[in-house]
Each structure stands twice: as structure tokens, then as C-alpha cells.
Design a protein around this nucleic acid. Structure first.
Length: 133
DNA sequence: ATAGGGTTACCA
DNA sequence: TGGTAACCCTAT
């Protein structure tokens, strides 16, 4: 009956950040196995790490909040049937910069004396390799 | 084991 | 009452 919800503390967030910066995102199991982080993330699970990282990335981003979650929640607060989506023409690609070097959803404590990246602004080097016409 | 989705609880 | 944070379950 004791389940007062485990609120994440700065220590946990720091360990999570360090783990992702050291090993990389998606390697929760490895991070959790690390004795250094396991000291703090000892009661945490791989799912918890992913959950926190997920919530953090979404909350500290362009989304005023977890709008996606909020919308899905506000929209119908319950999973709708698969409902067939006409799926008109869609030539848009998902893009998405894949992992690697994509860490640090929140802000840094006090470092980065060069890159002043307030958030994650992965400016692509322009892929439209279309040299004139 | 990892990623995604959905649900619940707590706080403002 | 609303929004945010966390936890559990399912699928890949």
C-alpha cells in the first residue's frame, strides 16, 4: 500500500543525463548496469529511464508540453478503434535526426562554453543537394 | 531489451 | 478543474 509515487530527483535526472551522454540513449540497460549510475538508478528500471527521458524530451521541447499526450488525452481519453484513415497522398518523410549526439533535453548545469544550444537544434546541413538547375 | 501507448496520481 | 509527472502494459 505504500506507493507514494516515486518523484524523480535531480540526482536521478543527472545520472540519466550522464548515462545517455556517456553510453547513449536507448542503452538504458547498459546505463543501469553501470555501477556509477546504478548507485542512484538502483531502484529505477530500464522502463523508468526511458519513461523519464521520454517525458523530459517532450516537455522541454517545442511542445508547450506533452501536447501530443494532452491532445490524445483531451481528444477522447480512451483509445479509439483503429478507424480507417483514408491516408491521402503523403509524400512527406518522417525525417527525424536519429540518435547519436542527441542528448540533453533540459539545460546544462554550467558548461558548454562554446555551443550555445539552448535546446536541441539540429540544423541539418541542408540535404537538398540540388545544384542550381 | 527497447520503443510506444495508455492510464493514474499529485500539484497549481 | 487543468496540467504535469510517473507507472504499467503491449508491441516490435
Amino acid at each position: 500500500m505504500g506507493a507514494p509515487k516515486q518523484k524523480w530527483t535531480a540526482e536521478e535526472e543527472a545520472a540519466l543525463r550522464a548515462g545517455v551522454v556517456k553510453h547513449g540513449a536507448g542503452k538504458w540497460r547498459t546505463i543501469l548496469k553501470d555501477p556509477e549510475f546504478s548507485a542512484v538508478l538502483r531502484l529505477r528500471s530500464n522502463v523508468d529511464l526511458k519513461d523519464k527521458w521520454r517525458n523530459m524530451s517532450v516537455t522541454a521541447n517545442g511542445w508547450g508540453s506533452r501536447e501530443k499526450a494532452r491532445i490524445a488525452l483531451k481528444k477522447s481519453r480512451q483509445i479509439l478503434k483503429h478507424d480507417d484513415n483514408p491516408k491521402v497522398l503523403n509524400t512527406e518523410v518522417e525525417d527525424i535526426d536519429h540518435e547519436i549526439v542527441i542528448a540533453k533535453p533540459p539545460a546544462m548545469s554550467s558548461e558548454s562554453l562554446k555551443f550555445t544550444s539552448p535546446k536541441r537544434s539540429i540544423s541539418r546541413c541542408n540535404f537538398g543537394s540540388n545544384p542550381v538547375i
